[in-house]
Design a protein around this nucleic acid. Sequence first.
DNA 1: ATGAAAGCGCTAACAC
DNA 2: GTGTTAGCGCTTTCAT
Lengths: 353, 353
Amino acid sequence: MSENPSATAAPQETVRRRRRHGGLTLRDVAKLAGVAPITASRALNTPDAVSPEILARVRDAVERTGYVPNILAGGLASRQTRLVAAVVPTISSPVFPEMIEALTNALAAAGYQLMLGQSGYADSREDELLEAIIGRRADGVVLTGVSRSPLARRRLIASGIPVVETWDYTPTPIDMLVGFSHTKLGSAVAAYLHGRGRRRVAVIGAGDERARQRTNAFIQTAQALKMAGPGGQVPTFHVPAPTTVGLGRSGLRALLAEHPDIDAVFCSSDMLAMGVLHEAQAQGIAIPDRLGVIGMGDQGFSRDVHPALTTVRIDGNVIGETAAHFILERIAGRQVADPVRDIGFTIVERATI
Amino acid sequence: MSENPSATAAPQETVRRRRRHGGLTLRDVAKLAGVAPITASRALNTPDAVSPEILARVRDAVERTGYVPNILAGGLASRQTRLVAAVVPTISSPVFPEMIEALTNALAAAGYQLMLGQSGYADSREDELLEAIIGRRADGVVLTGVSRSPLARRRLIASGIPVVETWDYTPTPIDMLVGFSHTKLGSAVAAYLHGRGRRRVAVIGAGDERARQRTNAFIQTAQALKMAGPGGQVPTFHVPAPTTVGLGRSGLRALLAEHPDIDAVFCSSDMLAMGVLHEAQAQGIAIPDRLGVIGMGDQGFSRDVHPALTTVRIDGNVIGETAAHFILERIAGRQVADPVRDIGFTIVERATI
DNA sequence: ATGAAAGCGCTAACAC
DNA sequence: GTGTTAGCGCTTTCAT
């Protein structure tokens, strides 16, 4: 180890350009094992293609040196990075982890790594992220929502990378899609509240695009079902994304101050609904008798709070698994059957309405 | 575009090996701009080093073609990937996002991308993740906690990649560290409860290593301060990580069933504390009068729940920013002053005790 | 089953 | 300021 390990014959006539940085390479491992670099490569990537004896020698050499293959070099040569990227608005929200987890696991099982990016809700960094993703030649991309900049669309299509859009629905995605309709969801919630006998509904809704779709559809259906207030207005409190318990509390306070007669609130997230629950408790408002509450997301805590939160469940697991499946199929060169999937949603009836 | 673009003179004596995949390369852009590839490279990476006219021509060519540089190739040649990896147990926990967010932003501002990995709490996938990270030649790594496998330690040290361990403390990290002592924290909480007049304390503690440190220290100090129950035992309810509201509820139920005389509970996370709050409400137990509750983490919801949760705040922002700073300094070749940092914690006094 | 040569797309090193 | 050349570390292609 202390001797000069790279004492190879250097050309006499000219100085050596660019020195290898001292890092361990496949060449070193191969030399140690007494084989050609390509053979060492085969031993690592396609063990069945080499003789057992050589395999053992190479593995031993790897073990002894602590060699870790350079995936950059491998990816450059093979045009395969074994990297799939996912972009979500934020990981702070309890909404996405379920999908991410499923994605991570399904991908890991196939030998792929997930690279996670946060685009933010407001000043979206999606375009930059996409540039980094394409630049790293990811083998697949999973995106949240279906609206992107024209530049992003163009780049994505030009790159030829398999793309799965999620968490929303359009019949014409960039490539593939697993999601659900926020419009249908909003309408379904309004109809559900009506079915439960509520007649004066209100909304606390986040400002992100998908929440707005849910909210708008809810309001329209509520109006059609005569659940609006005077003047056909459905009292609405707008909050910025990402949503918090605090915003839910302020929302209920504001709503109640101006419209004391409301008998149910639709919250565009369970976090907001949780805030409503706590504000109601602080004000001594009986739930669900005096006020019904329905959230959206069915977060981990929703079933466990008191009273247990009625909400709308989206199966993040299915989204993640399906997205992984789609991408893996594409990578394998197979045709994906039914690549635009609406997985729907379920209203989970519990104790708050 | 429709003509054969690669009609260069191929050697006559032998067939051409390996075809370029059709992808747009810097060479294409350079050709379009009428310059050498290296000049195009300079225009993109060090714009000041080329004349304004050439800069404009290259940018125009990039614009027109939609060229996205291959970071794999660039990284291979320059030994700089502009990639920093972070490994957390899970992103589902509300604990880490604050750090991740700060890390992401500080890194992005310097032109670096964060690659996020989840190791899981139980059967840790950390070693595999680390292999992928080292294999991709990340320019830096941010890790959670200070205990890793011997293999991981060896690989990390051998790789020469700057490493920051976080969210825990040891005077002898692998490389650098920003964190705090869970032992000190547990003791401080016990002392705090004592100061607030509580004399029969209990614990709901998660099974991950750091939570266990907090819990154990809490118990020891509680015993020293005579806040234990009969036989010097501090009633303890163990829950698996990650923690949930439901586990907090079960915890309080179990604790109360066996030890109805406890007057305060230390929860190893705010999620658990939230569960305690809801269980107490369901059982009609007055908080803080009959039972004091203190959590840990000061999550977003903690200040907003009712009653507002007393908890221990860890500044995830500072951890993230400091970790980014450490790594960027190292990358810049500068010496990091004071590379082992204990950022401490703060007990945030609110309404639950 | 193993190896030699070429080249993936880019930048460092060296001219001019 | 711009170009030539070599080579980063690996895998593909072709040959044996």
